[in-house]
């Protein structure tokens, strides 16, 4: 397949997004071996250093949840601490995936400077690597933590069948944001400091450590202004409540995921050609 620049041929640049997407899909397919290699090697680096590698990554959420459940179960109207721990688990573990993807996404282009400057590689590979890696981690830690939650009252229920859908939608959402942070951070290197604060504020604005029903219903609607809320609610509904999510919840998650991915993609593509000169 010939490499052509400008990629759109004689078409108006920027006008033909369908063509751009098709080209990127082809390009990514051609580089799938690279993608597979990058994900596999990062995965191995994360876990194989120590035999306990994977267990160590679980230790952090476990301790976090233990502390939070002891402290906060006193404040909120939960029947028991175990129930609160499951609630916490169903929001906190997906959130850590978003957190990791977005903050790693911010530095993924800069960190791969040696690669980008020496050989042609579609830059989309890097944010996608981050999201695949963190989604895989999410699946693993969710499985392992769920087993630990069984003594506390976690049960396998039919709505858990929607978990793959929830993870896919949330990963799509995370990818969209990672594409934006990757672009901005490459141009403005101090964006990272800001990002940490923003992510922290966002975390507290999302009902993860506190249940949404502890707030008066007059203010609860405001959570719908938070784009991460439907996803977290989705996870909490199927894991903690053990209920099927409403159609509104599923559709709003899917809609937000698609829109955010679209914004991220357009942002990234508009600046992709300039990235190499800013490294």
């Amino acid at each position: 397949m010939p490499q052509v620049f400008p990629p759109g041929g004689d078409a108006l640049s920027g006008a033909n997004w369908i063509g751009t997407i098709a080209r990127d899909a082809r390009d990514l397919y051609r580089f799938r071996a690279v993608l597979k290699n990058l994900v596999a090697q990062d995965f191995r680096l994360r876990y194989h250093r120590s035999v306990l590698g994977f267990l160590w990554t679980l230790l952090n959420p476990i301790l976090m949840m233990a502390v939070l459940s002891v402290v906060f179960s006193q404040f909120f109207k939960f029947d028991n601490a175990g129930n609160y721990a499951i609630y916490l688990f169903s929001g906190l573990v997906p959130w850590s995936m978003l957190y990791a993807t977005v903050s790693e996404g911010a530095i993924c282009v800069i960190a791969n400077e040696p690669l980008i400057r020496k050989i042609y590689i579609p830059k989309l590979v890097f944010p996608i690597t981050r999201v695949l890696l963190n989604a895989a981690t999410l699946v693993l830690s969710m499985g392992a933590l769920f087993l630990l939650m069984v003594p506390l009252g976690a049960r396998l229920t039919a709505p858990l069948l929607l978990l793959p859908l929830a993870i896919t939608l949330f990963a799509t959402f995370a990818l969209g944001i990672a594409l934006i942070t990757a672009t901005v951070n490459t141009f403005y290197r101090d964006f990272g400091h800001l990002l940490t604060v923003v992510l922290q504020a966002w975390y507290f604005a999302t009902p993860i450590i506190y249940p949404v029903n502890t707030l008066p219903p007059e203010v609860a609607w405001r959570f719908w202004l938070n784009p991460a809320y439907p996803f977290i609610r989705f996870f909490q509904t199927i894991i903690h409540d053990g209920q099927w999510p409403s159609w509104a919840l599923v559709c709003s998650s899917a809609g937000i995921a698609a829109v955010v991915l679209g914004i991220g993609y357009v942002t990234f593509k508009c600046y992709e050609d300039k990235l190499v000169f800013r490294l």
Binding site: P2, Q3, F5, P114, L115, R117, K118, Y120
Partner: peptide, 27 residues
Amino acid sequence: AGIYPPTSGRLRVEGRVAPLIELGAGF
């Protein structure tokens, strides 16, 4: 090699390119 996108003009490269420009790319 496709590393630097040109500012203007057209470029067409057909085939698998092996750039031996700098060693150790992607280690």
